[in-house]
Amino acid sequence: MYCPRTKTPLKKVNVGRVSVYVSEACGGVLLENQTLKNFECPSDKRGKALANHLSQFHNEVADLTQRVSCPVCSDTVMLRRFYSPLHAVEIDECPGCGAIWLDTGELEKLQSLMLSEKDRAILRHELMKEHERIEVKGLPHKHDNWHRRSDKVDALFDLASYITNGW
């Protein structure tokens, strides 16, 4: 496989039993489908190790807006999309195989946006408290008592059947 930016060979590196493909020419990294979640947390050992490894190859890429082809599916152009909800980091993703290409510095940007488990728990608690269920009671409607009406109708039919059977 070759780097989509520099067309140099990618080097396979195992980080905590997860294989990634690093471009030593530009500092980019290719992650197979669903493996980015293993590296996005900055406090995780894998995330730190990969970020440290990539930092030694940090080079500026001339044009990040240029579309690149997937190193795995060479005939497929990768989609450029935002990874984070804050729209701060754009990544390249293959629509065919799901591989993700991170250019130099993008992993560090992703890691800086991720919250720790403790921060997530605090945020979750605050959001739940802020969005508690609210019960809204309106004015009574004229048809709210229909169930009582059916009881009266049933009583009327009972009276009618008593009168007709009784005679």
Rank of each mutant, 00 (worst) to 15 (best):
5 R>G: 01
5 R>Y: 03
6 T>W: 02
11 K>W: 01
11 K>L: 08
13 V>T: 08
14 N>G: 06
14 N>Y: 12
15 V>W: 01
15 V>I: 15
16 G>A: 11
16 G>R: 12
19 S>W: 01
20 V>T: 14
24 E>H: 07
24 E>S: 06
25 A>F: 06
26 C>T: 15
29 V>T: 09
29 V>K: 01
31 L>M: 15
33 N>V: 05
33 N>K: 14
33 N>I: 09
33 N>T: 11
35 T>V: 10
37 K>M: 15
39 F>K: 00
42 P>K: 15
44 D>W: 03
46 R>A: 14
51 A>D: 15
61 V>A: 08
61 V>W: 02
63 D>H: 08
63 D>L: 07
63 D>F: 05
66 Q>C: 05
66 Q>R: 11
67 R>H: 06
69 S>N: 15
73 C>V: 03
77 V>H: 04
79 L>C: 12
85 P>N: 12
86 L>K: 12
89 V>T: 08
89 V>I: 10
93 E>L: 07
97 C>K: 05
97 C>E: 07
101 W>S: 01
101 W>H: 04
107 L>E: 04
112 S>G: 02
113 L>T: 05
115 L>A: 12
116 S>R: 04
120 R>E: 12
122 I>H: 01
126 E>P: 01
126 E>L: 07
127 L>Y: 03
128 M>A: 13
128 M>R: 14
129 K>P: 00
132 E>N: 10
133 R>S: 07
138 G>Y: 06
138 G>W: 05
140 P>D: 13
140 P>Q: 14
142 K>F: 12
149 R>Q: 14
149 R>G: 05
151 D>R: 12
152 K>T: 10
152 K>R: 13
152 K>M: 11
153 V>H: 05
153 V>N: 00
153 V>S: 06
155 A>F: 03
156 L>R: 13
157 F>M: 11
158 D>T: 06
158 D>W: 01
159 L>R: 15
160 A>Y: 13
161 S>I: 13
166 G>D: 10
167 W>S: 14
